[in-house]
């Protein structure tokens, strides 16, 4: 390294009261606010403009995300992330008190909690990807299908949908029919096995990003948030592993780095605290 001594690398600048790294991370977070701000605005705009009966899924009269998302898992995840933010602060506080071992332990706990978050998220995603939605060309009048009449500027149209687990999802186009165990609906409290002719089907998808605009928003927002979690985990793990030598050489610098990592981590936490009500509850 050919380092030139950079002013205010460590000591705060009198004008801002921050060392360079801290100022830099705040600026970075400002840009992150704009990134997620744009995505939240997208959510608002698409939701307001969604044709009747298509939000969050086709054939839904009530328009909240909790009909199809797993609120309890997300609630647990919220607690996990908030706890990880606390351990992040405890780590920094321990380091400030000159207790490296304790600081590193809390740092590792933060890392582990982030891992728990992702594991729970994985099961949440998996539950969606193994579920199916069939949009019908017109209502079949069978139990297990949901029908909603939606008013458009071209007049009324009926949206008919069957949600459930499709036996032959991959091959229905070749088979000529689709075999599906439908989810219980408001009017039918148990599952039905339905065989639907291929030419009655407008489209059949997983509950993946392409199933509806709501799910698209859900996967994009939580996916991007997940990438931020993974990024944070990489950084935290790096400081857990290299901490000992860094601490010996320049403890002050190490503490600053943990502080900056913490700021980023709280932001990731904060994004989730916005995501949870917006996607799962509203």
């Amino acid at each position: 390294m050919s380092d030139v001594a950079i002013p205010h690398d460590m000591e705060p600048h009198p004008l801002t009261g921050m060392y360079n790294g801290k100022f830099g991370i705040w600026l970075f977070l400002a840009s992150e606010v704009m990134l997620f701000g744009a995505l939240f605005s997208t959510y608002v705009l698409l939701r307001v403009g969604a044709p009747e009966g298509t939000w969050p899924m086709y054939g839904q009269e009530i328009t909240t995300g909790n009909q199809i998302l797993n609120v309890s898992l997300a609630f647990v995840n919220t607690l996990v992330l908030i706890t990880s933010s606390v351990t992040m602060v405890l780590s920094w506080a321990a380091l400030k008190m000159n207790n490296f071992a304790k600081g590193r332990m809390f740092l590792f706990i933060t890392f582990a909690l982030a891992g728990v978050f992702l594991v729970i998220k994985f099961f949440e995603y998996k539950g969606k990807f193994t579920h199916h939605q069939v949009v019908l060309k017109e209502p079949l009048g069978v139990d297990g299908e949901k029908v909603i009449t939606s008013k458009t500027d071209k007049g009324e149209r009926k949206i008919a949908v069957v949600n459930g687990h499709a036996e032959n999802f991959g091959t229905w186009e070749e088979d000529g029919y689709l075999l599906i165990h439908s989810d219980p609906t408001e009017s039918h409290d148990h599952s039905h096995e339905l065989k639907i002719e291929a030419d009655k089907i407008k489209r059949a998808t997983r509950w993946g990003p392409n199933a509806s605009t709501f799910l698209a928003t859900y996967f994009t927002l939580t996916g991007l948030h997940g990438i931020h979690v993974i990024g944070g985990m990489v950084v935290i793990l790096y400081f857990v592993l290299t901490g000992a030598s860094d601490w010996k050489k320049r403890p002050e610098k190490y503490i600053n780095r943990i502080e900056c990592t913490g700021l980023y981590w709280h932001f990731v936490d904060l994004v989730w605290i916005f995501l949870f009500p917006v996607l799962y509850l509203l």
């Binding site: 705009l45 698409l46 298509t54 939000w55 407008k202 489209r203 392409n210 509806s212 605009t213 698209a216």
Partner: peptide, 12 residues
Amino acid sequence: ESIYSGGGSPLL
């Protein structure tokens, strides 16, 4: 419609 769910906004 067989590929896309629709409901998006080009203006967005």
